[in-house]
Simulated scan of single mutants.
Amino acid sequence: MTASPDILCIGSALWDVIGRTPSHMRAGADVPGRITRIPGGVALNIAMTLGRFGLRPALLTALGRDAEGDELIRECIALGLDMTHVYRSDDLPTDSYMAIEGANGLIAAIADAHSLEAAGQRILRPLLDGPLGRPDTPYTGQIALDGNLTEALLAEIAQSPLFAQADLRIAPASPGKAERLTPFLRGGRGTLYVNLEEAGLLCQDRFDTAPEAAARLVERGAARALVTHGGDLCCDASADGLISQRPPEVLVTKVTGAGDTFMAAHIAAERKGQSRAKALDFALQTAAAHVSGEIAS
C-alpha cells in the first residue's frame, strides 16, 4: 500500500484460538463444541472492523519472523490492512490468545502478548522518527490504542508531545490491564472505551450503571469516556454532557471481540460526521450484530 492510512491501530495483533459451546459451563466442564483459529488481538480486531467500513487502517504491532507471523501478515493484507509498518522480530514469537466461551458467556481466557510487551517502543519507530511522524512533524490523525502495551510505554505515550496532536481512542484490552490507562485519565488525553468493571478499576470504585461510571471518569480527568455494560445502558460522557442508550436485545453467541467491534464502529460513525447520539446507536447496533453472530468472525 502506498496511500496514507486513515487511522493507526497500535497494540496487539495475534492469533485467537477460541472454543465455543452452546452449553452452560462451569469450572472443570468437558463439553462438545467448536474450536476456531482466527486473526485477533485488540488493535487488529479494531482494524479489521474499520476495514469493513471502508477505512484504510495501518497496524503498529510486533510479530515474530515465524510461520505464524508470516501467515498473519498474509491474512491481514488480504483483508486490505496496511502492514507496512509492523515490527518483525527475529527472536520473539508471534503472540496468541486462547478463550473458552459457553452459553453463559466467557468462561476463561489467557492473552499471551509477551512479545508485544518485549518489543516495547520499537513498534512506534515509524511514528517517532519515520514515515508516519517525527519530532518536528508529529502525527495528527486518529490513533486506536490498546492497553496491551506496557504500563511504562503507555505512560510515555500519554505525556509525549509526539502524540499531543493525534485524536487518541484508547481501550484497556481487558479488566486486568485497565489500570494501565491511568496516565490518560490523569492527563485528560484521548477518548476512553471501557466496560463497567474497567471503569471501576480506573476509578478505584464500584458502579451500578454506565452513566454513573462515565460521569465519574470525566470528574477524575477523562476528556471523554464511553462505558458499556453488556446488555444494559451504555453511556458517552464528556464536558458536553452525558448521552445514554440501551443496546438492542439479541441472543448472545460469542463475546470475544465485542468491545473492539463497538469501539471501531463508533470511530467509523464519527468519521462520517454522525452526531454523538447516532454514533453511539450505530456502535451498539454493530456490537449487537457481532455477539449475535450476524457478523462473521
Rank of each mutant, 00 (worst) to 15 (best):
Q121L: 05
A144H: 05
R134A: 00
A108D: 11
G141V: 14
G147C: 12
Y139D: 06
A118L: 02
H114C: 01
D112P: 10
A109G: 00
R122A: 15
R125Q: 10
P126D: 09
I107A: 12
R122W: 11
A144Q: 12
Q121N: 13
S115H: 04
A144Y: 08
Y139K: 07
P131Y: 07
A111V: 06
E117R: 12
D136G: 01
G133S: 12
G141W: 13
L124H: 06
P126K: 02
I143A: 14
G120L: 12
A103I: 02
R122F: 12
L106M: 13
A108Q: 01
S115W: 05
G120V: 00
A111R: 07
I143H: 15
P126H: 08
G120P: 11
Y139R: 14
P138R: 04
G141N: 13
E117M: 02
G147F: 00
E117L: 01
A119M: 00
D146Y: 10
P138M: 09
P138A: 06
R134W: 06
L124A: 03
I123A: 08
I143L: 12
A118K: 13
T137C: 07
A113K: 04
A113T: 04
L128I: 08
A103V: 07
N148V: 07
T140Q: 15
E101K: 04
I107L: 08
G130D: 09
G133N: 00
Q142I: 10
Y139N: 06
G105K: 09
A109I: 13
L149A: 07
R122M: 06
L116A: 10
A113Y: 05
G147E: 04
G133V: 09
G141M: 14
T137W: 13
A113V: 07
T137P: 02
P126Q: 03
A144S: 08
D129N: 15
P126R: 07
G147M: 02
D112Y: 01
H114M: 04
R134E: 07
H114L: 08
T137Q: 15
L106Q: 15
I123F: 04
R125I: 11
R125C: 09
L127S: 00
L128W: 01
G102I: 09
S115Q: 05
Q142D: 15
D129E: 15
A118T: 12
G147A: 09
G141H: 11
D129V: 05
I110F: 07
S115K: 08
E117Q: 11
N104H: 05
H114K: 05
R125Y: 06
A113I: 03
I107K: 09
A109E: 00
L116T: 07
A118F: 08
G120A: 10
A103L: 09
L132C: 10
P131Q: 09
L124W: 06
D112R: 10
P138K: 12
R122Q: 15
A119P: 12
N148S: 02
P126S: 10
P138S: 06
A103E: 14
L106G: 04
S115D: 02
L149S: 01
T137E: 15
I107S: 14
E117F: 00
G105Q: 02
L124Y: 08
D136H: 10
Y139L: 02
